[in-house]
């Protein structure tokens, strides 16, 4: 099963994301601040990371930069999630190697679809529910 790391300081949002992704057949790991997020990413080597920008300790851009400039982790897709929608922020995201950029408020389905684009649909329970 594919592993997804969710890093966001909003615990409720992390919970709901975790729920829908697990229903879709992914294994989710969670972290509520940048520091834990970065440590977990290196520890578990996830297949994809969902990352918030504004977080205590280390912000999302920094994590993304640290991972994307490291050969060991640079291939892990990163989906950046943030309330900010300014264009300049998007530019920073691109510069730091973020693969996708989703602005809050987002639809849960939207995230699931994006994740599936990168990881493919899970053959387990996810396949039973999904329809082409």
């Amino acid at each position: 099963m594919k592993k997804i790391l969710i890093v966001d300081d909003e615990q409720d949002i992390v919970e709901s994301l975790k729920f829908v992704l697990e229903v879709s057949g992914f294994v989710c790991y969670t972290a509520f601040n940048g520091e834990d997020g970065l440590r977990l990413a290196k520890e578990i080597m996830p297949d994809l990371i969902i990352l918030d920008v504004m977080m205590p300790k280390i912000n999302g851009y920094k994590i993304s930069r640290l991972l994307k400039y490291d050969n060991k982790y640079k291939d892990i897709p990163i989906i950046m999630v943030t309330a900010r929608s300014q264009l300049e922020d998007k530019a920073i995201g691109e510069e730091t190697g973020v693969n996708e950029y989703i602005t809050k408020p987002f639809e849960l389905d939207q995230i699931v679809k994006k994740v599936e684009e990168y990881l493919g649909k899970d053959e387990g329970e996810g396949a039973a529910e999904g329809e082409a």
């Binding site: 909003e10 409720d12 949002i13 709901s16 994301l17 729920f19 829908v20 229903v23 504004m54 309330a83 900010r84 809050k104 408020p105 987002f106 639809e107 849960l108 389905d109």
Partner: peptide, 27 residues
């Protein structure tokens, strides 16, 4: 304004997410 809207949107997103999950029947 940008801070307030961020602060307002985040809990709103959480509310909406929770209701989406209930309505999807997955819960």
């Amino acid at each position: 304004i940008s801070i307030v809207s961020h602060e307002l949107r985040t809990p709103l997103t959480a509310i909406k997410n929770a209701m989406d999950i209930i309505l999807s029947g997955k819960a």
